[in-house]
């Protein structure tokens, strides 16, 4: 259709404070793409070609505004040496953390993105997606933040205990995780992807505001600062309830904030004038609700998001459930595509 913008054009305008024809519609279609493509999750998580094909298939099917390269939050921890259990029908889970005790903390080596763990899977997928569709579709690589990676090095419970009992060791792990994330980001960028930082374990549903302030936010900020050196617009995604730390988000430097279980009005009021917002249809909605109720909920969120002065992206609060019925996600996306900005030319 004459004059219709493509996803790349929409994002480009959004990121320079302009208004595209409509907000980008960007549900977090990650492992759900395997479901659309018809492959199992072990293939999806271990083969960059399959991951890329699945992403392209899902995007062709739904027509949403971007490609997502993400398998699981343990990707960097695994490259450090933690072992993850791959599953056919669900995302990988931590099996054996590399630091079962803290004695070998000094032996950790920053992973080589070209050879360690499944990092090369990401790079291969990004390269393929960028070559095949990068002119019209932005490619996003989801990079776990240091807090989440450190939890994968130690095991979640142990790491949370470390933050209280042995904060020095916790900071050591966070620091090396941060450097690993920076190195991995560099390679993802060079392959053609814009990093999205994800920190699910830094959620208010898991840690306190104080812990967030001391152990999560400073490292998010460091990583974002490294990426800002390259003038990249960085999205920070934190799952769960982040209502008690919203005011700290602008301080991380994030250009876009992807939020989950928080009232969109609260987010708009608190930080909407400083950060572009991305959210937040509850993924549960996509499993349990009818298409009609999904449309209604999307409409409510969208009408509020559209008013955000710094710009808005319609998304899901967290990853689209793997087994989400296709027509339900389609209902959300289709409704999102009907939105229009009055501004622009």
């Amino acid at each position: 259709m004459r004059g219709e913008m493509n996803p790349r054009e929409r994002w480009s305008l959004l990121l320079i404070d302009e208004f595209p024809d409509r907000p980008p519609v960007f549900p977090l279609v990650t492992s759900h793409a395997a479901n659309v493509f018809g492959c199992d999750l072990i293939q999806y998580c271990t083969d960059g070609k399959i991951l890329a094909e699945a992403q392209l298939a899902a995007q062709r099917y739904y027509g949403h505004d971007g490609l997502s390269v993400f398998t699981d939050v343990g990707i960097i921890a695994e490259a450090f040496g933690s072992s993850y259990h791959l599953r056919e029908f669900d995302v990988p889970i931590l099996d054996q953390p590399v630091l079962s005790d803290l004695s070998n903390i000094d032996s950790l080596q920053i992973p080589d993105p070209g050879s360690n763990g499944r990092l090369p899977v990401y790079l291969e997928a990004i390269d393929l997606l960028f070559r095949r569709a990068g002119d019209v579709l932005p490619v996003f690589a989801y990079i776990p933040c240091p807090f989440t990676t450190a939890a994968g090095l130690r095991g979640v419970e142990n790491f949370l205990i470390d933050t209280m009992m042995n904060p020095e060791a916790a900071h050591l792990m966070l620091d090396i995780s941060c450097r690993a994330a920076e190195r991995f980001c560099d390679e993802c960028i060079l392959a053609g992807a814009l990093p999205i930082l994800v920190d699910p374990l830094a959620s208010g549903s898991v840690i306190s505001r104080r812990s967030f302030k001391e152990f999560a936010a400073p490292y998010q900020r460091n990583l974002i600062r490294c990426l800002h050196r390259y003038d990249l617009d960085i999205m920070l995604h934190i799952c769960g309830d982040t209502s008690n730390m919203l005011d700290l988000i602008p301080g991380t430097g994030a250009d876009l904030f992807s939020f989950d279980q928080v009232d969109i009005n609260a987010v708009l009021d608190e930080i909407g004038d400083r950060v572009r917002l991305v959210g937040n249809l509850p993924p549960n909605n996509l499993l349990a609700s009818s298409s009609m109720s999904i449309e209604e909920n999307t409409d409510i969120i969208l009408s509020k998001g559209l008013k955000n002065p710094k710009g808005y992206v319609l998304s899901t609060g967290c990853e689209v459930p793997i087994k989400c019925e296709h027509r339900k996600l389609q209902a959300m996306i289709n409704l999102g595509k009907t939105a229009r900005y009055e501004n622009g030319w």
Binding site: G134, P138, L190, G192, L194
Partner: peptide
């Protein structure tokens, strides 16, 4: 150049 490459200047 990598900055501009990521935004689509392939």
């Amino acid at each position: 150049p990598s900055t501009h490459m990521v935004y689509g200047n392939r």
